[in-house]
Structures are given as structure tokens and as C-alpha cells.
Design a protein around this nucleic acid. Structure first.
Lengths: 158, 158
DNA sequence: TATTGTTATACTCTATAACTATA
DNA sequence: TATAGTTATAGAGTATAACAATA
């Protein structure tokens, strides 16, 4: 049986090439984390990013988001509170819950991280032709869109 | 003084958008590591990747590549050897050195990781229009090229 | 009795310091 | 004496199990 091959080459070949080409971007992305002050561990940084996204949350919700279990999350919070980056207060509604929030310094650290990451990309993008920058941005946006669609269809079937 | 503004918008704006759009790709990249069997820690996986790149190397060279110190690298190797993923033999040329190499299982694990990563990207790329796939690939390749050039010019000035 | 969170304990990862073996 | 590597010890991250407080 002969079937027309629609794309100029198989998607699998493109995927291999994209994986290969994406490595530099992933490295640049990760390197920004080492530039923030004060230095926090990757695990602690994840806590700050999750709490920032939620605004405020309790410990079990944090553990869920981290894919961890409550005792691990609790210890991480211990150290972040000691470092002054996070606040942990008894909930006003339910006295067995705690409310986690970023401190002013915690928000500052994330702002520093975002700036550091943006500058790292800017240094490299400034060396590229404008059309290539546009290609990259559009490609990444479409990739994100396709991934979101994939997630949605998977969620529907579950 | 009036200067022509070459790009249609400032590079800093594009950088912010690229950082935003790159997040999904970074997440997909990282998620493949959780799919390999047997499960190894991120630190152990880095060891395997570095040793694979070098083919064979001694402990100090490994520690350098990891940005770690020899005792940390040595412990990591302890566990990888115990897991059967790495071999550590006395060097034949210099009896105070050790020679680190991937075992057959170690190479297998990295092959599994590469396959898992490629399939994760393939699933998403297959949902994209061919032209968007090409945009992404070209953009990533040019980004990698610009980063390499940046590294070269920095090295020259150092 | 179920839920929320912490403490107790153990293993991994990382570092500093001290040590052994080789050159 | 300098180099390559390991062992000793300690703090951080993670897990399981046991516990206290609240609902």
C-alpha cells in the first residue's frame, strides 16, 4: 500500500533535531538560577515559585504542587522561613492549617531571577537576526500551544 | 542625536516574550528524566551524561565538569557503581588515578532517556503545522549558534 | 474518626577537613 | 612535596512512620 508522505520528513526526525537544538536554550534557562542572591537550593526555589503562583496556600497544597509529601515540604518551609524568604502563619479560618506567603525578600529574589533570566536571553538574542528571533519566538509559542492542547485532550479522555 | 531603530521592537521585549514562551519546552525537556528506569537522581544522571560525553575520564576531571569537588563526585560514583551503571577501575598508566566508564546498563539508561525525550517532543510536534515545526527548529539552531559565538568572543577576551 | 501538620529516623547529595597511596 | 582519591563528619533534601492538634 502506497501512502502519500505529507511532511517533507518524518516528525520523529524533526523531534530528534529539536531535542538536539534545544539543549543550549535549556542550559541558558537553568544558568540564571545560579546568579540570584541569596543563593537558594533548587528545591527551595521551586517552593518560592509555587507559592508565588498561588499567592497564598497551605502546606498540603504546596506538597501536592511539588510532587512531594508534607514532611518534606514542611522542612523546606522551615529553612525558607529561617532565611526570611517565606512566612508561615496559622490560618485564620481553620486553626489546623498554616498559610504560606512570600516575604518581601522572597518576592525580591524571584524578581531578581526573572531579570537575570531575561538578561541572559537578551545577550544571546541580540546576536541573532531579527527574523531568526521571530522564528524562535513564534515556534516556541506554537509549541506551548500544542502542548496545552495535548494536555486538554488528555484530560478530557481521563 | 537621532538613530534608526533597526528591530521592530526592543530586544528586551522579545527576550521577555521568549522567556515566557520557553517555559513549556523546558518543562517537557525535564519531564523525560522521570520516565527512565531504573530511577536515578538528577545528580547521578549528570554523572552519566558527563562520562558518556568523555568516554572515559578520571575522578578529578569528572568533579570539574560537575562543578563539584572530588569527595562529592566519589560518593556519586560509589552509588552508580553499586547500581551497575558505571565502572571504576585503576588507571593502567598512573596507579593513583581511576578510570570511569559507563557500563552496558549505563549506556542503556542514557539511550532510554534520549528515546523518552525524543518521543515526548514528537508527541507535541506532531500537533503543530509543519511550518511551525520548521520555525521552531531553525530558531533553536540559530539561538545555539549565537550562544556559541558569544562564548567564543568571551573566551577570546579572557 | 478524618484532616493538617510536625517530629523521628534513614538514605542521598553536597561540602570541608583529614587521611592514604602514588608520583 | 605535590597529586589523586577516599574516608570522616555535618547540613540540606527526600521519604516512611509515628505523633499532636484540630475539625
Amino acid at each position: 500500500m502506497t501512502v502519500a508522505r505529507h511532511p517533507p520528513y518524518r516528525v520523529g526526525d524533526v523531534a530528534a533535531a529539536v531535542v538536539d537544538a534545544a539543549e543550549t536554550l535549556v542550559i541558558v534557562w537553568g544558568s540564571a538560577e545560579q546568579a540570584v542572591q541569596p543563593q537558594v537550593s533548587p528545591a527551595q526555589l521551586r517552593v518560592l515559585l509555587v507559592v508565588d503562583r498561588y499567592g497564598s496556600m497551605n502546606l498540603n497544597a504546596l506538597a501536592d504542587e511539588l510532587g512531594a509529601i508534607p514532611p518534606s515540604a514542611s522542612r523546606l518551609c522551615d529553612r525558607l522561613v529561617a532565611a526570611g524568604l517565606l512566612t508561615r502563619q496559622p490560618s485564620e479560618l481553620n486553626r489546623r492549617e498554616v498559610t504560606l506567603r512570600l516575604s518581601r525578600d522572597g518576592r525580591g529574589l524571584l524578581a531578581e531571577l526573572a531579570g537575570s533570566r531575561r538578561r541572559a536571553f537578551e545577550r544571546i538574542l541580540s546576536e541573532m537576526a531579527p527574523a531568526d528571533r521571530t522564528s524562535l519566538l513564534t515556534g516556541l509559542q506554537r509549541f506551548g500551544g500544542a502542548a496545552a492542547q495535548k494536555r486538554t485532550s488528555r484530560d478530557r479522555s481521563a
